[in-house]
């Protein structure tokens, strides 16, 4: 065997390119990376410097560090931002539970069980993936209004328990199909009920996909602006995103420091997930083509 074959496959080696070309590519990539991250880093530095220093400066280093913006921002509205963070967490966590449970149930049915009309329902489920939310928006609103759910978390949470985000069903069906059938067939022979197979075999073997679905449902719910905008109009129920919007509306462009500080805080949970589960997120996107 030649050393060529033992070494990493050609596409995993950098040496394929001329050193100069390689240097050029790195330089271009680093420049692009700096350009892309600059606004984010600048927002971080702007929220840490005194208000008077925010404007007219492109520098990332504050002359002095001050946490005043965070304190100002936290209490800028009639309720402290802590309230909005709590609301967002409650909605996001309930949504995660709802999505993981209801979508995995449906996915198990589609991937493993035989029932009358399965192909028909599956096709319809895929069809809903393409449906823009605008088409169901108004009747859903009327429905939730009639149920007296407007201004509660229910319109934002209950649909998640009814597997309304069909995307996650699709994601899980793909994963379930990759689990060897012998496992559940053997369990079936031993007289295991579908429930036990789902709970004791499928779910434990599907932790990667369940985690991916959980993280994405958290991030999407956390970032959701449209749903809360429509359904929550009492400030006590506001999510972080609505709080930020009120902040923009009430202070206009006069309190950038506080606004930046709160905006930054609102990104922290998403950023933490990014740091902790980066590989899982990227794999999720690469295999299913999620939009973000």
């Amino acid at each position: 065997m030649t050393s060529e074959a033992i070494a990493a496959p050609p596409q995993d080696r950098e040496e394929q390119r001329h050193p100069f070309v390689s240097l050029l590519i790195h330089a271009a990539l680093i420049a692009a990376a700096i350009l892309m991250l600059y606004p984010l880093l600048w927002m971080l530095s702007a929220s840490l410097r005194p208000e008077s220093e925010i404007f007219g400066s492109t520098s990332l280093w504050p002359s002095s560090i001050s946490f005043d913006s965070f304190i100002d921002g936290w209490y800028a509205l009639s309720l402290p931002f802590g309230r909005f963070f709590t609301n967002s967490f409650v909605i996001a966590i309930l949504s995660v539970i709802g999505n993981v449970l209801s979508c995995s149930l449906a996915a198990f049915a589609f991937a493993r069980l035989e029932f009358w009309g399965k192909r028909f329902w599956f096709a319809l489920m895929l069809g809903t993936l393409m449906l823009p939310y605008h088409v169901v928006l108004i009747p859903q609103y009327v429905l939730f209004l009639k149920l007296d759910w407007v201004n509660t978390f229910l319109p934002l949470v209950v649909p998640k328990f009814l597997a309304h985000d069909a995307f996650f069903i699709f994601l899980m069906v793909q994963f379930f199909r990759g689990i060897p059938r012998e496992l559940d067939e053997a369990a079936m022979m031993d007289g295991c009920s579908p429930w036990r197979i789902y709970w004791k075999i499928m779910l434990p073997l599907s932790l990667p996909v369940l985690t991916t679905a959980a993280i994405f449902s958290f991030i999407w719910t956390w970032d959701d602006f449209f749903g809360p905008l429509i359904y929550l109009n009492d400030i006590r129920n506001y999510t972080v995103q609505l709080g930020l919007r009120s902040f923009v509306d009430s202070t206009g462009d006069s309190d950038w420091g506080g606004l930046f500080a709160m905006s930054l805080l609102s990104l922290v949970p998403v950023f933490v997930f990014f740091l902790a589960f980066q590989r899982l997120l990227i794999e999720g996107i690469a295999t299913t083509g999620m939009k973000r």
Partner: peptide, 21 residues
């Protein structure tokens, strides 16, 4: 059993998707 597992989605599909559409 298939429909038992599908039930939450089915309720959502009829009540929150097809019905409203």
């Amino acid at each position: 059993p298939g429909y038992m597992f599908l039930l939450p989605w089915l309720i959502g599909f009829l009540g929150l998707t097809i019905g409203p559409a």
